[in-house]
Design a protein around this nucleic acid. Structure first.
Length: 725
DNA sequence: CGAAAGGCTCTTTTT
DNA sequence: GAGCCTTTCG
């Protein structure tokens, strides 16, 4: 059987070009996953390459799993030997294996963003700065950015200039120290340490280069510099490296993803073969054309020639709602309508949005109508307090140096160990150059020359915690993960503790849910099981747990939607300030990324697209009015199904698409009384004079002349008009 | 030390 | 609207 028979010529070329570097520029829906899987199958089945010697890097664990599934069907053999996963997962594995030579102990724990923030904050304080003046999240993002470019604290300090850099540099240094002391790595370290490992240990690098003679990297447009260097190191010998990406779908620059990686690829590998995949198998012509129109407004891009043999399909629906509640209601109504028509199933529909906060109104509507939905991420399961608490216990059992975990749970449930005690413990530990846990140990069982700075009462409470931990640590060597889990909950009285908090029942359910996750690891050896579990829970992403087979509408951020596809896509919040997000307004490059985000959303759709905006939206408590997104203006009208001006229960069609051209929909809480000659101020158009004002339905139509901006026809309830003079 | 209440700030996207 | 911090009181 010809493994490549099912591919089109371009796909086939990409799959077959196994010798030397290959850059595949794959438009949305062009079958890139297909190419990758077939390429691997071809390598194994036709070229006789052992799966053991192939590494495929994916963007999410879910993508890796799916690829594995597909491969199982293509090659009836062991796929297990393949190295497939995210950069982070693969690097964690490498470091457990070989990290020791660069000072990474195999028992390291991985700090997620919340852990990082708490550690940065501590670093700021311990460096003698004020975390209120230097915002931990801002400092962290600079640190993270530096790590993504393999800039060490020393290098950062050297090149730095200005006060903020000085503070950040010293904090960065301290932060790395604290990580080190905690035997912990953050997300960025996982990558950076491997690059440093390969740089400093040629024989280790050689081992990996010899093993992985074929490399594949998916979503290459979203790799950062460390990742690029890593790939370059690994491919340094055989240069069989195949990267797949689409510059138009690059949406992670804020995570230091660098589009230059694609440009540099052709520079670093001048012999690279470049393959373009431009035929789209996913979307209708109308959808593809809409997407192309949106993306072509970007300046910093090469034009592409996407095409499809699919039919023209339905026109794009642009919908105006007056509030986010109505917007959500519209979505649910429309889903229900499509369902009734028997056109689609629930699972065919997805609602996409720019920010997680937008999911709330949608959820409420879905709940109200009883329409099944699944929220990707929103729960942020692993970020929940109760889940983090239990994980912190398990982490501390696994690695007693983990100070973030220790500080998190030493007084949870309450043991009367307060701030004072903790700062004494910390400074004592620091002065002796030992970990918090070791200091705790010494406080409970003092050695002659080290007198603990605590009174007897404090020592008693500390000892209570210490005894629990010691027992848990000892038992962890023999207990399966679930038994250990149960023992932790029992010994700490966690159930009683959490049941006494608000939403106690629900929180306890989450703890039980975490135990269900733990169960999947219970057939591993005790210590091994714990270690693998802990790594698993920090490296999962929300899409990883996403199950498309569940019969429910998907609620998902545009970022998470990358790589997915749905017959019906609703994109909500197409407003200036939301999509594009307000934070992109002063930076053209960021604005282009917002546009790409919109493009990613639209290209997820196979058959139907709804682009929805709300004239008024609650943001941070207060109500704001936004104009419809500029991206809507780039959709030619022949592709638009007549924008529905959708108004509440009457679901009334106004059949006009010009609403955002002649009018900036907006609303004021107090409607001013207006008559001809009145002077007004509009948030967009500035000062103007009222020409006329007459009632329309329950509203008033106001015609205003804005000097230099023209004469505008506005609806009083929507326009944010302020009367002056 | 801890619980409760009030005040503050900040809101993008996530491996 | 939420999460974090500070203040206050027991």
């Amino acid at each position: 059987m010809d493994i490549l028979a099912a591919l089109n010529p371009a796909q086939r070329e990409a799959a077959e070009a196994i010798n030397g570097p290959v850059l595949i520029l794959a438009g949305p829906g062009s079958g890139k996953t297909r190419v990758i899987t077939h390429r691997i199958a071809y390598l194994v089945k036709v070229c006789g390459i052992s799966p053991h010697r192939i590494m495929a890097v994916t963007f999410t664990n879910k993508a890796a799993r799916e690829m594995e599934e597909r491969l199982k069907k293509l090659i009836s053999g062991s796929v297990k030997e393949l190295t497939m996963g995210t950069f982070h997962a693969i690097c964690a594995r490498i470091l457990r294996q070989d990290g020791r030579v660069v000072g990474v102990e195999p028992r390291f724990v991985i700090y997620d963003r919340a852990d990082q923030l708490s550690l940065v904050k501590r670093a700021i304080k311990e460096t003698g700065f004020d975390p209120k003046q230097y915002i931990p999240s801002a400092v962290l993002s600079v640190i993270s950015n530096s790590k993504s470019q393999v800039i060490t604290p020393e290098a950062f300090i050297q090149r730095g200039s200005g006060n903020f850099d000085e503070v950040t540099g010293r904090t960065y240094e301290k932060y790395q120290q604290l990580l080190n002391q905690s035997n912990a790595l953050d997300f960025d370290d996982l990558l950076m340490k491997v690059v440093q490992l390969f740089d400093s240990q040629p024989e280790v690098l050689d081992k990996y280069q010899e093993r992985y003679i074929h490399l594949l990297v998916d979503e290459f447009q979203d790799t950062n510099l460390v990742q690029y260097r890593l790939v370059k190191q690994l491919a340094g010998k055989y240069r069989n490296v195949c990267v797949v990406g689409d510059p138009d779908q690059s949406i992670y620059s804020w995570r230091s993803a660098d589009l230059r990686n694609i440009m540099n690829f052709e520079k670093d590998y001048p012999e690279a073969r470049v393959v373009l995949l431009e035929q789209n198998y996913r979307s209708t012509k109308a959808i593809l054309e809409t997407a192309s129109n949106i993306i072509s407004a970007n300046q910093e891009r090469k034009p592409t020639q996407l095409w499809t043999e699919n039919k023209q399909g339905e026109l794009i629906n642009i919908v105006s709602a007056s509030t986010q509640q109505e917007e959500a209601q519209y979505v649910v109504n429309e889903v229900e309508r499509l369902l009734r028509q028997g056109e689609v199933r629930l699972a065919d529909c997805a609602v996409m949005y720019r920010t997680n906060a937008q999911s709330r109104a949608l959820e409420e509507a879905f709940i109200r109508y009883g329409t099944p939905y699944k929220l990707v991420a929103g729960t942020r399961f692993y970020e929940r307090r109760e889940v983090k608490d239990v994980i912190a216990y398990l982490r501390l059992i696994h690695n007693q140096q983990d100070s973030v975990s220790l500080l998190r749970i030493i007084n949870i449930p309450q043991r009367s160990i307060g701030e004072r005690t903790l700062s004494q413990l910390a400074s004592w530990a620091n002065s002796l150059g030992i970990s918090h846990y070791r200091a705790l140990q010494l406080a409970v069982n003092p050695e002659d020359d080290k007198q603990p700075p605590f009174n007897p009462r404090t020592i008693r409470v500390l000892s209570g915690f210490y005894e629990i931990m010691e027992e848990l640590i000892i038992r962890s060597r023999e207990l399966g993960l679930v038994e250990l889990f149960n023992l932790v909950v029992k010994k700490t009285g966690y159930r009683e503790y959490i049941m006494n908090t608000t939403d106690g029942e629900e929180r306890w359910e989450n703890v039980l849910e975490l135990r269900t996750v733990a169960r999947q690891y219970s057939d591993l050896e005790p210590v091994e099981g714990l270690s693998v579990f802990l790594e698993g829970v920090t490296l999962v992403s929300d899409v990883d747990t996403y199950d498309e087979s569940v019969g429910a509408v998907t609620l998902i951020t545009l970022h998470q939607a990358k790589g997915l596809e749905f017959p019906v896509v609703f994109i909500v919040g197409l407003e200036e300030g939301i999509l594009p997000h307000i934070r992109s307004f002063d930076d053209p490059a960021q604005m282009e990324e917002e546009r790409r985000l919109c493009y990613v959303g639209v290209t997820r759709a196979k058959k139907r697209v709804y682009l929805i905006y709300a004239l008024r939206r609650n943001l941070m408590g207060s109500s704001t009015a936004n104009s419809p997104s500029r991206f809507l203006k780039d959709i030619p009208s022949h592709l638009i199904a007549g924008a529905d001006l959708w108004r509440g229960e009457e679901s009334q069609l106004r059949g006009s698409i010009s609403c955002w051209e002649s009018d900036t929909p907006a609303i004021t809480i107090d409607l001013p009384e207006l008559k001809a000659g009145d002077r007004v101020i509009h948030s967009q158009f500035g000062r103007g004079v009222v020409v006329s004002c007459h009632p329309v339905n329950d509203d008033s139509e106001v015609v205003v002349a804005f000097p230099g901006m023209g004469v505008k026809k506005l609806l009083l309830s929507f326009a944010r008009l302020e009367k002056v003079g």
